[in-house]
Design a protein around this nucleic acid. Sequence first.
DNA 1: GCCGTTTTCGGCCCGACTGTTTTCAGTCG
Length: 585
Amino acid sequence: MPGSPRASAGLPAVDNERIARVFEEIADLLELEVANPFRIRAYRNAARSVRGAESSLAALVLAGEPLPKLPGIGEDLAEKIQVISRTGTCPLLERLHGEVPAGQTELLHLPSIGPKRVRLLHQELGIDSLQDLQAALGNGRLARLHGFGPRLLTQLATALKARSASERRHLQPDARAQAEPLLRFVRGLEGVTDAQVAGSLRRRRDTIGDLDIVLCAEDASRVMATVLDYPPISEVMASGETRSSVRLDSGLQVDFRIVGRQSFGAALQYFTGSKAHGIALRRRARERGCKLNEYGLFRGDERLAGETEEGVYRALGLPWIVPELREDSGEIDAAERGALPHLVELRDLRGDLHCHTRDSDGSNSLRDMALAAQRLGWEYLAITDHSQHLNIAHGMDAERLARQLDEIDRVNEELDGLTLLKGCEVDILADGSLDLPDSLLERLDIVVGAVHGYFRLSAAQHTRRILRAMDSPWFTVLAHPTGRLLLERDAFAVDMRAVIRHARQRGCFLELNAQPQRLDLDEHYCRLAKEEGVLVSIASDAHRVFDFALLDYGVGQARRGWLERGDVLNTRSLAQLRSLLQRSR
DNA sequence: GCCGTTTTCGGCCCGACTGTTTTCAGTCG
Ligand SMILES: Nc1nc2c(ncn2[C@H]2C[C@H](O)[C@@H](COP(=O)(O)OP(=O)(O)OP(=O)(O)O)O2)c(=O)[nH]1
Ligand SMILES: [Mg+2]
Ligand SMILES: [Mg+2]
Ligand SMILES: [Zn+2]
């Protein structure tokens, strides 16, 4: 078997993500066997729970330590986690693979195709894969199938043609760029009194599946007709009185929901999600003898709330919960106890600890970056160009960096209110050594260490590599700690708890890289860093002056990770920052 | 499969849109 999951050197090859994917795969296969829907849900909930777990579960298993109590993980699933941790799979998954034709999960992921239709395709036409379906679409046999009307057939044809495009998720800037003109359009429509973005974009998730837009209007069906006139709409997938799903020319799906004024808050709550958060609220309503839906909170026929979100939460005995926290990962409990965090905000940041200039792969001069930062009212900006190993980015050798340090001294002379810090984004080499000599590193205010290559090391090797880098007395911040590139490259395998604990021990910090294709640390690791008492640097990694605006994406992610002002390194004043960066050398 | 100020069985969120359904199943948000 390629990539044997067996652990080497005490660290597991199976990370939480892999365990979660096994549970999701089981859920898909159970769905195809038309199993008990609640059992299927249990596996999907388990996947979510494992993703949110703060420790590497396989690491605990291999160390013989007990698993923490995780929501939705009972006796049976805990046992399965043990087995998956050791083998990368489990008997149930293997059995299901033997029973369900291999291509059927792909079919299940097509729009409007669920387990019953997959079964029908199999039984009536022997279709078990995307290729089979493609062929059947071509020769007209599909149309004879019960429930396969013309609308569904066009939808399937589109989905098969642009499969990769339609299944693809989107980065926030892309989603935002398409949401803005759309919002302008619908807000200008007659009868529309309010329109808000909901869904994952409002929750500021790292990637966005589709746009979810709630509109407030009394005459829903008339307004819906005008909404569908939005020129970039290429396909109307479903359209009724109060909700529609469309696809834009770009391939992005948009879901619209229209409700009246007295339901707008309830609809916004419903459509913002997350699904798990919404279900948890509905369960809570039920426990209190009420019913919560997108129209309001009701006791019998009596409407208790619905006009505003705040009113809905209040009527459920809760303070309003910011969208970023709505993942059913402890926020309802915290709200109930009055213990919601006061999340960090963009305006709390007093500077940025990671940026580039023309001296490596940036587009603007050092001076222009400094002046732009000064205009933002910041107290400090660390200049952190690449080191020599990254020659693709014109990384600097010792001599060029030394010249840059002189330049920083000169620019600092003319700056007003802003202080440039001397830094470098130093490559962490494969063996964990740093890419510049100590004689130079010791002259820097901040050393941002980064992994830019050798991603295929094992978790054990990566962890050793990073711990060793932190052992350098000059190392201060670990940049983009998992190396992930959203929609392109997974995080590399690493024992993040060990990294974070070592950072605390060594007086180092972790970065939350705000580039929207990174957002690395993710929200789960942010919570872990907070729990372990390691400050996070929310950093733009700007390569041009406009990139400082990207910090807001980082703040969004930090908020999803429950970070408060005190948990963030660059909310500190320059004096506080300097003393934090001054390690016991 | 999970879970319990309704506890160890019997629940598990609730509603819109589509199709050929004439009273509802399938899929999705
Ligand atoms: N009550 C309830 N609400 C749901 C359900 N499915 C979705 N929703 C609500 C919560 C979601 O956040 C919202 C939008 O649905 P989406 O499928 O677009 O999910 P979301 O935007 O959260 O993530 P995405 O990035 O689009 O995949 O609709 C459900 O099964 N029950
Ligand atoms: Mg969405
Ligand atoms: Mg949606
Ligand atoms: Zn960088």
